[in-house]
Design a protein around this nucleic acid. Structure first.
Lengths: 215, 215
DNA sequence: CATAAAAATGAGTGAGTACTCACTTTTTAT
DNA sequence: ATAAAAAGTGAGTACTCACTCATTTTTATG
């Protein structure tokens, strides 16, 4: 993807709304926050890497924390994006996905591409969530009100069709998410240099998940 | 567990080797690093919380990073402790565990207790591993030379007995670890306030794992 | 108790921090 | 072409940082 476009895409803004220098600042901040962490990165370093004066950062973002939130908030939303789409659950009920496996496959593929594309910003989001209770709270709210809510309907739908084990929906949701996230975490964060055969490993992971969850 | 003892236990040292003030320093550091992160915690804050002068910290630990390593290194070793025991693999081969399920059950129970007991120190270890490449490198070395090595033997043993699917051992290891770690992560870090029925949820997780991996 | 060694102290140090603001440069509108 | 607005600058500010070291307090030994 184009170097400039992916950031605009992640932040979900139009080209005209942000200046070139602003993009440089965001890009530098994402890279350095991902590498050394928010607290260990100074605004002077970000300015140097972005090729702007330190004051320019504070013209666009009132505080350093504001700059962090400008990165983290859109990433948080994009992280759960499929579940924010209105027609997502409808697609499932109208037999867009005949089986749970097809649904899982679609989500898995989608989130794989997402992590691959936005890895540094995702790193920042997950790392800093541990230290900033406001970010964590916002994540939990969105998760409960959007992801969990819709996921539960989908799981119950396939349980009624007799495809999934009669476990509590929250258990099935947890196992599904941690299995997918477990692969992505191992693949991109823990062992990014291992010679992965992504397609095959995703296939194995899906088979494992379906076997584990079948009625 | 006694307030003083768990730390000595984690650090694997005798009572006489560390002074009372030293324990206070370590305890304060673990708590604050876990909460706000290493970089965002100042040595003056640690000293205040520990009830010692700032200089006392530097008498025991040459640098702030040294203090971090004094916490992280023992936690890293304890994290993979079962796999460091010499008789661990022997136990498996001598039918201490007749089935893979019994082995998984033992490891799961053991690591559940470990995380429950040392949660703050584990937080520090995992959070800071993302920012300190020396810590990450040490973890990878130990994992490859001890955990992976022995785990592979065990998996192949049960594959030969026809208990496990003919997947690559590294895939089975990954799925086993991420399933267990996925539960512990959700249980203790992501949603510690959710009203968990631990025993039942562990049971469901093991059933899911065994169904997913069976031949 | 006397004395030496060890442990603890906290004011002090230079380097670096997030952020400000008076000023310059660039862009936009007419 | 010109004026107004917006964007960009970087030296300056008050403050915090990890770390030092001369001094005091505690402990150990005869």
């Amino acid at each position: 993807m184009d170097e400039r476009k992916w950031l605009l895409d992640l932040l979900n803004v139009e080209e005209q709304q942000v200046s070139e220098k602003q993009i440089n600042i965001l890009q530098a901040a994402i890279e350095m926050f991902a590498e050394k962490g928010y607290a260990a990165t100074s605004t002077s370093e970000i300015a140097r890497r972005a090729g702007v004066a330190e004051g320019t950062i504070f013209r666009h973002y009132k505080t350093k924390k504001d700059l962090l939130l400008a990165i983290v908030k859109p990433t948080l939303f994009q992280s759960v994006a499929p579940f924010l789409a209105k027609k997502f659950v409808k697609d499932v009920f109208e037999n867009e996905y005949e089986h749970y496996e097809q649904f899982v496959r679609a989500v898995f593929q989608n989130r794989y591409e997402f992590v691959k594309t936005y890895l540094p910003a995702i790193r920042v989001f997950w790392q800093e969530m541990a230290f900033h209770s406001d970010i964590k709270a916002q994540f939990q709210t969105i998760f409960i009100n959007h992801v969990y809510e819709k996921f539960k309907q989908i799981v119950e739908h396939f349980q009624q069709k007799g495809e999934l084990a009669p476990l509590p929906p929250e258990t099935i949701i947890r196992l599904t998410i941690t299995t997918i996230a477990g692969f992505l975490f191992t693949r991109f964060l823990l062992m990014p240099d291992y010679p992965w055969d992504d397609e095959q490993e995703i296939e194995r992971t899906i088979q494992f998940l379906m076997n584990g969850l079948k009625a």
